[in-house]
Simulated assay, not measured.
Amino acid sequence: MSRLESFRRRLNAQIDGINWAIENIGETEGENTNAIQGDILEMGLGNGRTYDHLREYANRRIWVIDRVLQCHPSCVPPKADFLQGEADDMLVQMAQRGTQIAFTHYEFGIGVSDVDSAEATRLAPLIKAVMAPQGLVVSQQKMPVMTQIDGPPTVDPDRYFFYRNA
């Protein structure tokens, strides 16, 4: 498969995975007692495309963690919701404040499998510490401390990974 085809496959997996997670955490407005309580966490802002998608379709506060703010000008998160710095430190601060996350989209990575996998393995316990009970993680990397579940049938299980905080 060409890198271009792989890129298209990743984008389709992101869209389908994010939409699936938004639907599965439920709406917190109204009388929906089955909704998973908490905010959304976007890990890796990059250009801001997935953040923009979350803003469009999810009706919750969206926290963003990244080392630098270099996204498209239309995708800049509010200052109060952008946590700039190392993810370890930001996740610890969130846990200390009692922030509860219903859905995390994990998109960190430089494209080097061993490096990306090691970072996800290191961050997974810190992510778990801020996740609401039954919260969902959609990730391009494996999260060994999470309970892996099936995501949408349109996403190859080796392309994107889906977890529930059990």
Rank of each mutant, 00 (worst) to 15 (best):
G26L: 00
P78Y: 07
R60Y: 09
L41R: 01
G98F: 03
N34W: 04
N12M: 10
V138N: 07
E86R: 10
Y106H: 06
R55G: 07
M90H: 04
R8A: 12
I36Y: 01
T147F: 03
D114K: 04
T104G: 07
R164G: 04
I15A: 02
R159H: 11
P153V: 11
P133W: 00
T33L: 13
G98P: 07
I101E: 01
K142T: 13
G85T: 06
R3T: 11
Q70D: 15
R61N: 15
S113G: 00
E107M: 11
D66W: 03
L54S: 06
I62W: 07
K142I: 12
G109E: 10
A102P: 06
L91N: 05
T154E: 15
G135D: 08
F162N: 07
L11D: 08
R67E: 08
L11C: 08
F103R: 10
G38A: 08
G151A: 13
E23W: 00
G30R: 07
H72F: 04
Y160M: 15
D66K: 00
T28A: 06
R3F: 11
S74Y: 03
F7A: 12
Q100V: 13
E107G: 14
A95Y: 01
I149W: 06
V112D: 13
V112Q: 11
L11T: 08
A13H: 05
V64F: 01
P73W: 02
D89V: 12
I62K: 07
S2I: 09
G151H: 12
A129H: 05
E42S: 03
I15V: 12
L45W: 02
I40E: 02
A87F: 04
Q141F: 03
R67Q: 14
I101C: 04
Y160K: 12
Y163N: 09
A35R: 01
W20F: 15
F103Q: 08
P125C: 12
A58P: 02
E107A: 14
V76E: 09
L41A: 06
A13I: 04
Q84N: 06
I40T: 09
Q100L: 08
N165H: 14
I36S: 00
G151C: 08
I149G: 05
E5G: 10
V115N: 03
